[in-house]
């Protein structure tokens, strides 16, 4: 084989370029900390990375949705527990009022306490989370129980998606437990005994019966309170189930998030130790190349002609 100087130059330049490029790439990986810096570095991994990032972003969003749901559902739960406390207290008062030894004046005293309970119950029905009435429907800016004590909004369930395909109801229209669209009676008799299935009605009937000194209706109210208490507990159970669902998803998200970040890092992150050692290797090669080139390319036969 006939070798010319140009062949050495060319080889030297191309080898030097190759080494420089490798060092440049290693340097890029070190400075970004990433193994993939453009799609062509690993197109399939890049495609996976886009997928992981989308899922992580969905989970982040989902976490915020879970917080919103939790705020509402937890408020609903505590509201219902308070309501149940009110019902229990009203039962005690009803039992006291039904006792034969209590006179009309004492019954009126008891009635005023029942009225206070009724007002608290209405207050609970009009609980707000942020700007939203949680016992309202879609008309979330309208108080569910109006001045007459009647249910005054729509009863649509408001749902949000806490994860793809998983929805949670974040309201409980007040006509479920509190009252339907019937305004509360202001005078008695006749008493609306059939309306005893709603909390506000039951409390109102009790108050009116106490004021009217009507023991029969007071006793009837006791039965009513039992049945509305059942309703309230049922609602609490449902809310509890919803909370469980939310917590399960939240736990699943934490695991999933961790996994996704691990996958992402596996595809994306540079193996620093490997990159550094590779870079050192290339650097040694480059130094060797330079030394040889400067030593060898410097001389030719011409140097020896005198």
């Amino acid at each position: 084989m006939r070798i010319t100087m140009q062949m050495f130059y060319d080889r030297f330049i191309s080898d030097m370029q190759k080494n420089m490029e490798a060092i440049f790439r290693s340097h890029e990986q070190l400075s970004t900390g990433k193994r993939i810096n453009r799609p062509s570095d690993d197109p399939t991994a890049m495609s996976r990375v886009v997928g992981y990032k989308t899922q992580i972003s969905a989970i982040d969003q989902s976490k915020r949705a879970i917080n919103t749901a939790k705020d509402s559902v937890e408020s609903m739960e505590s509201a219902m527990r308070n309501l149940n406390g009110i019902i229990t207290r009203a039962r005690e008062l009803a039992i006291r009022g039904a006792t034969g030894s209590v006179d009309a004046g004492a019954r009126r005293m008891i009635a005023s306490e029942v009225d206070a309970l009724l007002q608290s119950a209405i207050g609970i029905a009009n609980t707000r989370v942020g700007e939203r009435y949680i016992f309202s429907g879609f008309q979330s800016n309208v108080a569910p129980i109006d001045a007459s004590g009647a249910f005054a909004t729509d009863n649509n369930p408001v749902s949000i998606d806490i994860y793809a395909g998983i929805t949670v109801q974040i309201n409980m229209p007040a006509n479920r437990v509190f009252n339907d669209a019937t305004p509360l009676m202001t005078t008695a008799p006749p008493y609306d005994t059939a309306a005893g299935t709603f909390v506000l009605q039951a409390l109102n009937t009790l108050s009116l019966a106490l004021k009217g000194n009507d023991v029969g209706i007071i006793q009837q109210s006791l039965t009513n309170l039992d049945s509305v208490s059942g309703r309230a507990l049922e609602a609490i159970g449902e809310i509890g189930a919803t909370l469980n669902k939310i917590n399960t998803i939240e736990k699943y998200h934490n695991d999933r998030n961790h996994n996704l970040n691990t996958y992402l890092s596996k595809d994306m992150d540079a193996d620093i130790a490997r990159v550094v050692s590779e870079m050192a290797q290339r650097q040694t090669a480059l130094e060797g190349l330079r030394t040889v080139a400067t030593e060898f390319l410097r001389t030719s036969l011409f140097d020896f002609i005198r």
Binding site: R2, T4, M5, M7, D10, F302
Partner: peptide
């Protein structure tokens, strides 16, 4: 390289 082998100028050779 192959072309250089035939057509390239080698300074040693020319010397």
């Amino acid at each position: 390289r192959k072309r250089q082998e035939i057509s390239g100028v080698s300074l040693d050779e020319e010397a």
